[in-house]
Simulated assay, not measured.
Amino acid sequence: MKRFKGFKGTPVIVLGVLLLISAFIFPSVADNIQTKGIEKAGKDLNINFPKITELVIEEGQEETNKEDIITISDEEEKVFDDIVLLIQKSTLPIALKNRELSESESNRMVELRKKFKAGEIKSEKTMAIGENLEKPYYNPENETYYYPETEMTDEDMLQIIVFDEKLNRAFSRFRETYIQEVMENLEPKISEEEAIKSAKEIVEKVYNVDLDNMKISCSFDSTGLNNKKYWSVGFQPKNLDTLREQEKLYWIYFTKVDIYDGNVVYVDSFYSNQMSEREGVAETDLNNIEEYKKMSEEILIEKLNIKNVEFLKAYVRKPNNLLPHKITSKNLYLVFKAEDRYVEMLFLYGSKRMVGLSFYDDPVELNERINKIEERSIGNIN
Rank of each mutant, 00 (worst) to 15 (best):
Pro237Glu: 00
Arg108Pro: 07
Ser217Ala: 10
Lys125Trp: 07
Leu101Val: 06
Phe80Lys: 01
Asn227Pro: 04
Tyr138Glu: 01
Met183Tyr: 01
Glu77Asp: 12
Phe220Asn: 02
Ile216Asp: 00
Cys218Thr: 05
Glu59Gln: 10
Glu277Val: 03
Asn320Pro: 09
His325Leu: 14
Phe359Gly: 04
Asn382Phe: 10
Gln34Met: 10
Asn185Cys: 04
Arg113Lys: 14
Ala170Cys: 02
Lys97Val: 14
Asp156Asn: 15
Lys228Asp: 00
Gln274Ile: 08
Lys293Ile: 15
Pro140Lys: 06
Leu18Thr: 13
Asn226Arg: 14
Phe254His: 03
Leu304Glu: 01
Asp31Lys: 03
Val355Phe: 03
Tyr207Cys: 02
Pro27Gly: 04
Ile13Gln: 04
Ser276Thr: 13
Phe49Cys: 06
Ser123Val: 01
Gly350Ser: 05
Thr284Asn: 09
Pro140Arg: 03
Asp212Cys: 01
Arg278Cys: 06
Trp231His: 08
Met275Phe: 14
Asn132Leu: 06
Thr144Ser: 09
Glu290Leu: 10
Glu302Lys: 08
Ala118Asp: 15
Asn263Cys: 08
Val264Arg: 03
Glu134Gln: 10
Asp74Lys: 15
Arg369Cys: 09
Ala128Ile: 02
Met214Phe: 15
Lys318Glu: 15
Tyr266Asp: 11
Glu279Tyr: 11
Lys372Ala: 14
Gln180His: 10
Asp68Leu: 14
Leu348Met: 13
Asn263Arg: 11
Ser106Trp: 08
Phe49Lys: 04
Ile381Gly: 02
Arg376Met: 14
Ile381Asn: 08
Glu77Gln: 12
Asn107Glu: 13
Asp362Met: 09
Glu155Met: 10
Asn168Leu: 07
Glu375Arg: 11
Ile259Gly: 05
Lys135Glu: 14
Gln274Met: 14
Asp82Pro: 01
Glu151His: 03
Asn380Thr: 11
Tyr137Asn: 02
Pro136Lys: 01
Leu112Cys: 03
Leu15His: 09
Pro11Thr: 13
Phe171Asp: 00
Leu19Ala: 11
Arg173Asp: 12
Ser90Leu: 03
Ile301Leu: 01
Glu291Met: 12
Val343Ile: 15
Glu151Tyr: 02
Arg108Glu: 10
Leu133Lys: 07
Leu312His: 05
Ser377Pro: 02
Lys135Gly: 00
Ser296Arg: 09
Leu300Tyr: 04
Arg108Leu: 13
Val267Gly: 04
Lys307Met: 09
Glu62Val: 09
Phe116Val: 07
Ile47Tyr: 12
Gly42Cys: 02
Glu165Gln: 06
Met295Glu: 14
Glu193Asp: 14
Arg353Asp: 13
Val265Tyr: 12
Val29Gly: 03
Glu184Tyr: 08
Ala338His: 05
Thr242Lys: 11
Asn331Cys: 09
Thr144Arg: 06
Arg169Glu: 07
Ile72Ser: 11
Glu131Ala: 01
Ile289Tyr: 01
Lys66Arg: 11
Glu291Asp: 15
Glu141Ile: 09
Arg99Asp: 08
Gly42Ser: 08
Glu151Asn: 01
Glu124Lys: 12
Ala23Trp: 01
Met214Pro: 00
Arg173Leu: 02
Asp241Met: 02
Ala314Val: 08
Glu339Phe: 00
Val14Lys: 04
Asn263Thr: 15
Lys372Met: 14
Leu348Asn: 12
Tyr178Phe: 15
Gln88Gly: 08
Phe49Leu: 07
Gly280Ser: 12
Lys78Cys: 04
Lys89Val: 01
Gly9Asn: 14
Asn273Leu: 12
Glu134Tyr: 04
Asp154Gln: 05
Thr223Tyr: 00
Ala23Met: 05
Lys66Ala: 07
Met127Ala: 11
Asn139Asp: 15
Tyr360Leu: 00
